[in-house]
Design a protein around this nucleic acid. Structure first.
Lengths: 147, 147
DNA sequence: TATTGTTATACTCTATAACTATA
DNA sequence: TATAGTTATAGAGTATAACAATA
């Protein structure tokens, strides 16, 4: 059964392919409690220790309001520290704990297995092409809403 | 600010690109109440009048339980008919109403504008490549959970 | 005035388990 | 036994509006 109209829509295929990744991610890492959003936040903190929530949100397109519970979750699990920033008393400086570093490394290893499983049919060149194409979509500004 | 680890992960880019499509879809069609899932269901019914819920769910990877409220929503809006199937008294035959045909056509026109806006930087060949690569991911079987 | 973090809230998507009626 | 549709429920992602403290 083929649905020609849907088959031609990139948005439809992005949704389906993203869904396959989500299911496989959950089955591969779900037991550890790691989720895609949490891993992306850990990854940003690992690359930029001392960064604050707002900067992470802007980097990952996560809204401020939604960052709060995500950061709380990582703090509660002992994966990150949340300390007063030295130069801005509104901001909180985020760093990985020892446990956070371990969780980050272990998750990354499992994610590589997960990616290799789903991308088994794609050559290295095709994976690079796919990422390059997706990045050009990410760079697009969505339609602005009127006031 | 670049995060090399995330940048190499296809799953990360699928999530981000899918997010851009979702935001732009909502802004382009949100006022009409049309959403990606609903449009995909309308599209399947348009291509296969008389199809039942279970078949749509299998075609689109939507679980039976979640089909119920989606179909209810389309019926309540007057976009589809839900009639007793002639050959299986458990099943319900779904067809588009006049209004459903109109909503489908109008939505498709707007979706084309939305896709063209987000894919403005991609040539026709690149769009075809992207869809072909995504379809090969969709074909992968996610990891099976143990019993 | 603008920004950081926060609370409250709502909607959507997705997942599982269990039920009924038919096949 | 298996399938079609349903109900109930829960977790997760994402959206907006408004607030206090600080820049």
């Amino acid at each position: 059964m083929r649905f020609e109209v849907l088959e031609r829509l990139v948005g439809y295929h992005l949704r389906r392919a993203s869904g396959v990744f989500n299911v496989d991610f959950a089955r591969t890492l779900g037991e550890s409690g790691m989720r895609p959003v949490l891993f992306s936040i850990l990854s940003v903190i690992e690359a930029s220790p001392g960064i604050n929530q707002g900067s992470i949100g802007r980097a990952l397109s996560i809204q401020r309001a939604n960052m709060v519970s995500l950061i709380n979750e990582l703090v509660d699990r002992g994966l990150i520290h949340r300390d007063a920033s030295t130069d801005d008393r509104r901001a909180l400086a985020l760093t990985l704990t020892e446990k956070g570093h371990d969780a980050y490394r272990e998750s990354l290893e499992r994610i590589q297995v997960h990616e290799d499983r789903l991308l088994i049919d794609l050559s290295a060149a095709e994976r690079a092409t796919l990422i390059a194409l997706l990045r050009r979509i990410e760079a697009q500004e969505p339609l602005e809403l009127g006031p």
